[in-house]
Design a protein around this nucleic acid. Structure first.
Lengths: 176, 176
DNA sequence: ATGATTGCGGTATTTATATTCATTTAATAT
DNA sequence: ATATTAAATGAATATAAATACCGCAATCAT
């Protein structure tokens, strides 16, 4: 007897309309967005930002949310701290070049063989794209080896195909 | 007037002899090792582990150390937390000749993923080093694939990580 | 319906972490 | 050596973050 909660449903259909929403799901979304686009150094700070976006909660809830989202707190070089989303929903810094290449059809295919991934590219493009992958997915990828039109991607230990797919999906998604 | 601190020098040469060391440099090293090999959820916990390794400090110092090392605290799926090292100061997996080569700068790192090993080198060095490996380690190594700055080493079946490390140490010992 | 169950979220609190301040220790210059 | 400067550290404290506890509201099972 599957019955869908009307409220949840409503919100599910309005994921991007933050104005009048005050449920968890949306809040998590908002938190993600903020953390993706801003350097936030404490929960209090984040709390304030949430407030500005009509998400009024307490620090306790925020702490729970961050735990749920697996947001890590990491020191920065400038002596401050930053909350960062886990890699699979982390923005790839400087997405420009890589996506442009995809958009232009430089990346032809992606296939897996066991733990390894192979990216086929237009001739000559491999090293350029491999460099991008190296730099944007250091968390998932141990290294890449590029020939002329083929890149071998070696995921880190513990990284699943899904992880790699997620990582690339984010990238691929951006092209549209 | 460049004069090298004798103590630092000593310690630099004895990075693995923790027994009698109680300086910062070493402690950071120890902390790295612990975090690399253990799930640590709080500074207190880490503090205890340090104590067991003759690094007795206070939480204050530890906090500063972690900040220095840019260690992030991240939630795990099981509801606990973990301190994680940033990827760029990940393991220099062992000591010895190979590390000397690392120190000399041509080989930047060696990491394993499953049965495979990936060697990172300075740009342009990969094929040269791969060639050496190919020729001197046919017993352990099935083959290598070199890009510009990355070598994929494919060990033969039954060859352990230890074997590979030993091989590399032997192979590169002669070079210095 | 009605009681059970679950998940969310706030308050108060505990626990954990960062920092200030004072002191010691080590490096550098004289 | 000795003085000077800088780095490292501990004790105490301030700040930040996690959680125990409670109540509420929504769903579920009967």
């Amino acid at each position: 007897m599957l019955d869908i909660c009307k409220i949840c449903c409503t919100f599910a259909l309005n994921l991007n309309n933050y104005a009048f929403m005050k449920n968890k799901r949306n809040r998590l979304q908002v938190i993600s967005e903020i953390l993706r686009s801003t350097v936030v150094g404490s929960q209090e700070e984040l709390l304030k930002m949430l407030g500005e976006r009509q998400c009024e909660v307490t620090q306790a809830t925020l702490s729970r949310d961050l735990k749920l989202l697996k947001v890590a707190k990491t020191p920065l070089s400038n002596g401050t701290y930053k909350y960062i989303l886990p890699s699979y929903n982390k923005p790839l810094p400087n997405q420009g070049a890589f996506n442009t290449l995809i958009a232009h059809g430089a990346v032809l295919s992606l296939e897996f063989s066991g733990q390894l991934a192979v990216v086929k590219t237009k001739p000559g493009y491999a090293s350029a794209i491999a460099w991008d992958i190296d730099n944007k997915a250091t968390e998932q990828v141990l290294g890449t080896i590029a020939g002329d039109d083929t890149i071998l991607v070696i995921p880190r230990e513990g990284i699943t195909r899904e992880d790699i797919l997620d990582m690339l999906n984010v990238t691929f998604a951006e092209k549209n």
